[in-house]
């Protein structure tokens, strides 16, 4: 598979690589302990010691943004992984076998997709308890239908192609055909959806944590930080701005990547 080097893709790749590098470094080192409070340094404006200022408890915002971006990224990635894995299984089965199995699973799919997603996520989280893993699970479930639908359509399309018929005529079993022959051929179509799904997951995590049902204090996540920052919009605008900028960078990078990939896959 070759990726055409268009501008979107390049810029997206640069931004994404930058964010990934920051997140990776943040796992081992941040300028300050993200949770260390300093009563003498509350709501400091950006300065040399604290490039992005400090928050209401005197915690270093740069350190918290780095840590929060990491948390948000991991949650989004896990969410997409769940949605994609289940989507592959459901879409693969329905697209390949069709018939009543297809009817049942796709109606179930539609049912999940019919609920307003944030609302459904809130309900699901309420059934468990607020926190990181609940958010991942709830959002993951929400992401299944869209992936399932894409995979199903693509599998059904590939199924009618001659090379699949050839494989069947060689006596290849269903599992072998699906995993070895069809799966690699649908990856190019899936990649842009994965990138878009990741962005939606970042936004959804931010919303959940902003609403207070996501990552719990004192842990940092970008949505959690926005929630905390809203009280100080006037007195410490750098707090909200830093968290917001990090969200935008994450989304922008993957958005541009997916557009770069999408243009290529469509060609």
């Amino acid at each position: 598979m070759k990726i055409e080097h268009n501008k979107n893709f390049t810029v997206g790749a640069v931004i994404t690589c930058f964010m990934l590098a920051v997140i990776l470094v943040g796992m081992f080192w941040t300028p300050y302990d993200p949770n260390a409070m300093d009563g003498a340094a509350k709501r400091l404006a950006p300065c040399l010691a604290h490039p992005l200022g400090t928050d209401n408890f005197g915690r270093d915002i740069l350190s918290r943004v780095i840590e929060g971006a990491g948390a948000t990224f991991l949650i989004a990635a896990a969410t997409v992984a769940i949605g994609l894995a289940a989507g592959l299984v459901i879409g693969g089965l329905t697209g390949w076998y069709g018939g009543w199995l297809d009817e049942c699973l796709m109606r179930l799919n539609d049912a999940v997709a019919a609920f307003p997603s944030i609302l459904l996520a809130l309900v699901l989280i309420a059934l468990m308890e607020p926190g990181r893993s609940s958010v991942i699970l709830a959002l993951g479930v929400l992401f299944v239908p869209s992936f399932a639908r894409i995979v199903r359509a693509e599998v059904a399309r590939q199924k009618s192609l001659d090379y699949v018929a050839s494989a069947r005529l060689m006596g290849a079993g269903d599992v072998r055909i699906l995993l070895l022959h069809i799966l690699p051929n649908i990856v190019p179509v899936l990649l842009p959806s994965v990138a878009i799904g990741f962005n939606n997951a970042v936004l959804a995590e931010a919303s959940m944590s902003y609403l207070g049902v996501g990552v719990q204090p004192p842990d940092a996540s970008l949505g959690r930080m926005l929630n905390e920052a809203q009280g100080y919009l006037m007195s410490a605008p750098w707090y909200a701005l830093s968290a917001g900028a990090a969200i935008i960078l994450l989304i922008l990078g993957f958005g541009l990547l997916s557009e770069g990939l999408g243009g290529d896959a469509g060609a």
Binding site: M1, L161, D162, S166, A167
Partner: peptide, 24 residues
Amino acid sequence: LRRVQGKDIGVVFQEPMTSLNPLM
């Protein structure tokens, strides 16, 4: 049927362009 397909009976189609997996 699968034990016969491929092993005892091979099939060659009209379209050599599409009867191979493009990514293999």
